[in-house]
Design a protein around this nucleic acid. Structure first.
Lengths: 201, 201
DNA sequence: CATAAAGTGTCTACTCGTTAGACACTTACA
DNA sequence: TGTAAGTGTCTAACGAGTAGACACTTTATG
C-alpha cells in the first residue's frame, strides 16, 4: 500500500496486494480449504478473470502472500532503526525491535497463526525465518570466554524469541510493542552471551 | 472494500476508497492542513492526474470521507442484527449494537477524533449523527407514565451514548465490543424510559 | 446413480481507469 | 527576489480490468 513504483507496476502490485488482503480475511472467516477463487475476487471486488491474470490458482496466491510477508520480515530486520522509539539498547539492538515493529504493523497477517486451517507453511516457515535472521544478521559475542556451540545457541535464542512472539500474537497484542520489547530485553540479560547486529560490524 | 458492483463502478469506487484510506493515514501522520494532494496520491500509489478525475481537490475528498462514514453509521443502525453476538437484549436493541459494531469495524477512521488537526467537521457532525439516529430510528416508551420532554430526553441519551463512545475510542478500544455494550446497558437501566427500535414498530 | 449446482482454468475483444507529461498559474520561504 | 513545491487542467496513449463464453471437474442432493 506504499511508495515507489514506475507506472504500470503500481497497478499490478496494487491488485496483487488487494487479493492478498482478501485472502487473509477469508482465511480467518472460512479457512484455507473452503476458500474459493470466487470468494476471493468477490471480497476484493475484482473480476474472476483478473485473478488469473495475476495468479495461476489459489495455491500460488497463498505462496506469494506467505513468501512476501516473510521476506518483508527478513528485510525489516536489516533496516535502520526508525527514530521516535527509545527502547533501542545495547543489549537488544535495532533489528530485534524492527522485527517486533514489522509484526505489529502487519498484525492482521500474523494473526493467521491463531487459526488451524490457515496459510499452508506458515506455522513452520515463520519460526524458520526468525532463525534465519538470527543466523545471518546477528553476531554473538562471548562475555566471559565461556565456550558455547554457537549454532545451538542461535537456535536456542531464536526459538526462545519466537515463543515470546507467538504468545504476544496469540494474546491479541495486549501489551504494547515497547512493553513487549522490554520483556525480551529482561530475558536476554540472563544470557552469558550478548548479541549484536552484524551491520554494526 | 466489499461486495457488489457492476463492472466499471467497481474500479471507480475502489480508487476512491483507496484515496480515502490514504487520507486517513496522512491525517494521523501530518494533520489536515499540511497534507497535500501529492502526499495522498504518493501514499495511495496513484498518479496525480487520477486524483483530479475523482475529486476536485483535497476538500472534496475530505467531505466525501466524512459523509460516507457518517452515512454508513446511520445505515448500519437500521440493519438487521448480525447473528453470532448474543448481547442483544430487550433494553438495548440491535441498532445500538450495530452502531458500536460499525464504529469498531471502522475504528481506523473513528480514531481521527483523537487528533487536533483532523477531518474538518468530524468533531461536530459525529455526535450530531448519533443524535439523528436516536431521533429518527428510536421510539421511546414511558415505563410509568411520568411525563418527559421527549426531545430533551433524546438529546440527553444520545449525547450520553456519544460520551461513552468517545471515551471508548480515545482509550484505544481497550474493552471489547461486548463489554462496552454491557456497560451501556447497565447505564440505560437507570432510566425511567425504555427505548426501542422504530423497526420493531 | 443421475443430475444439478458450483467451481476451475483458459481465452477473446472491448473499455475506461490510469498514466506521463506539459502548461500556467499560486503559495511558501530562505 | 528567486526558486522550490503545490495546484488545477488537459491530452494522447496504454494496459489493467471487464464481461462472457467454453469445456471441463468437483461436490452435494434426491
Amino acid at each position: 500500500m506504499n511508495n515507489e513504483q514506475n507506472s504500470t507496476s503500481g497497478r499490478q502490485n496494487r491488485t496483487k496486494e488487494h487479493l492478498k488482503q482478501a485472502l487473509i480475511e477469508l482465511l480467518k472467516e472460512k479457512g484455507y480449504h473452503t476458500v474459493t477463487v470466487k470468494n476471493i475476487v468477490d471480497y476484493a471486488a475484482y473480476n474472476r478473470s483478473t485473478f488469473y491474470i495475476h495468479y495461476q490458482d489459489k495455491v500460488e496466491l497463498a505462496e506469494d502472500l506467505l513468501i512476501s510477508m516473510l521476506q518483508g520480515l527478513e528485510a525489516s530486520a536489516g533496516k535502520p532503526h526508525v527514530p521516535g522509539h527509545k527502547v533501542y539498547t545495547a543489549t537488544l539492538h535495532a533489528p530485534s525491535f524492527n522485527i517486533v515493529s514489522y509484526i505489529y504493523k502487519n498484525r492482521n497477517f500474523f494473526e493467521l497463526i491463531n487459526y488451524d486451517d490457515t496459510l499452508p507453511g506458515l506455522h513452520t516457515r515463520f519460526p524458520q525465518t526468525i532463525l534465519k535472521i538470527y543466523q545471518e544478521q546477528f553476531i554473538f559475542e562471548t562475555i566471559n570466554n565461556i565456550p558455547v556451540n554457537m549454532d545451538y545457541f542461535k537456535r536456542y535464542t531464536a526459538y526462545g524469541f519466537y515463543g515470546l512472539l507467538h504468545n504476544w500474537i496469540q494474546d491479541g497484542f495486549r501489551i504494547t510493542q515497547e512493553e513487549f520489547i522490554h520483556e525480551v530485553i529482561d530475558l536476554t540479560k540472563t544470557h552469558m552471551y550478548s548479541f549484536k547486529y552484524i551491520g554494526d560490524h
